[in-house]
Design a protein around this nucleic acid. Structure first.
Lengths: 208, 208
DNA sequence: GTCTATAAATGGATAGAC
DNA sequence: GTCTATCCATTTATAGAC
């Protein structure tokens, strides 16, 4: 009953971090919740930061998988919807990281570099998809606008959950869908009329 | 030499919170820095949260002053530039609040409500200015797009500094200007051609 | 691998003298 | 108003038995 103790600790830590916020969860809380001793927890992990780093590794792999540009063809709007779903669901599953992002990164140089790398890759990925949409004739924008758009997509995606929390949103179950729509509405004004009208209609349906 | 001790504590706390992050500054650190005793600090403030609440009061007043719609005339783009400068400079001066926003709000119900109220007012203010620009014929957008735009302006303004930090931006002195441009670029695609081209040119000048 | 016990350090906060 | 002294609670982390 416990060769998987290491994994149970990680799973429990993730759940508690997400529920209560990483700064409010101590190693003792995690041990208590799992009904194991603090000593046992420290047998498996050097310290709290070690646990966070392992969870970050999982996150890194998952978000990396969500960043792909269609191969051998131009992207369409449906590709964007799908990709946003993957990204937002990953962010949701590791939301503790985003909740206290700056504080967590400030304590760990390695994580700081790894997260910066992810943001860079994500921005490049967004840029690439946007240029694909432009080549497909679906969007029309200047180079400066496409750069700004890619960055703004990243800002909104990264901090949407925090925005919802700071504005006092009650229904957390809606936040992913609302976030996706919010990002799509960043793209809306650059679309051809047909897609633009369609999206505006859709956005109201997604809102309910 | 100290009827203004209370103010000195607030000033020092603000500077240290901004420099090191609120979670990393204790009441003892503040007392040390001011070369007063912890007991003295606790004579002036009930606890650390009390200090934060007072600083929040200052912030609230300042950000409130930045939210005004021009009276008796329609707004132009210059009004937006000015207002964004006021808002971003206020955010910069109280950046500790934004750095650990969710954690700070989670610990204090009153602050949570007050910040939600500010965000609400700011979004209404943005909406109102955007509708003014539409009435002036400067922007063209659907109702859904104007709502989404107002929200996205708030998201980007609120979390721009955090985005810069998480992506590893080195030169903090540029962050305000870059943030303002980034918000303007949210508006860009809705502008008439003349203003839109002008803004795209400007955005490169601001970038240097 | 896991537990008990506990050290060591920190942070928040107060009592009481001056 | 300010200081000294100190307490209490929490948190991280380790030693050593089982």
């Amino acid at each position: 009953m416990a060769p998987q103790t290491r994994q149970r600790i990680l799973d429990c830590a993730l759940a508690m971090f997400n529920a209560q916020g990483e700064p409010n969860v101590t190693t003792n809380h995690i041990a208590d919740e799992l009904e194991i001793s603090p000593g046992n927890l420290y047998y498996h992990f050097r310290n709290k930061d070690d646990i966070i780093e392992q969870l970050f590794g999982r996150y890194e792999e998952r978000i990396g998988a969500a960043m792909t540009v269609p191969e051998g063809r131009l992207p369409g709007l449906e590709d964007i919807w799908l990709q946003l779903h993957l990204v937002f669901e990953c962010i949701w599953d590791y939301r503790f990281l985003y909740r206290d992002l700056i504080d967590i990164l400030s304590r760990n140089r390695r994580l700081r570099m790894r997260f910066a790398r992810i943001l860079k890759r994500a921005t490049d990925n967004a840029s690439s998809v946007i240029r694909g949409l432009a080549r497909a004739g679906i969007v029309r924008a200047s180079a400066a606008e496409m750069d700004a758009l890619a960055t703004n997509i990243l800002v909104v995606a990264t901090f949407w959950l925090n925005f919802g929390a700071s504005r006092g949103d009650q229904d957390e179950s809606k936040s992913i869908r609302l976030g996706i729509v919010q990002v799509m509405m960043l793209i809306s004004p650059f679309l051809r009329d047909a897609e633009r009208v369609h999206l505006n209609t859709l956005s109201q349906a997604y809102d309910d």
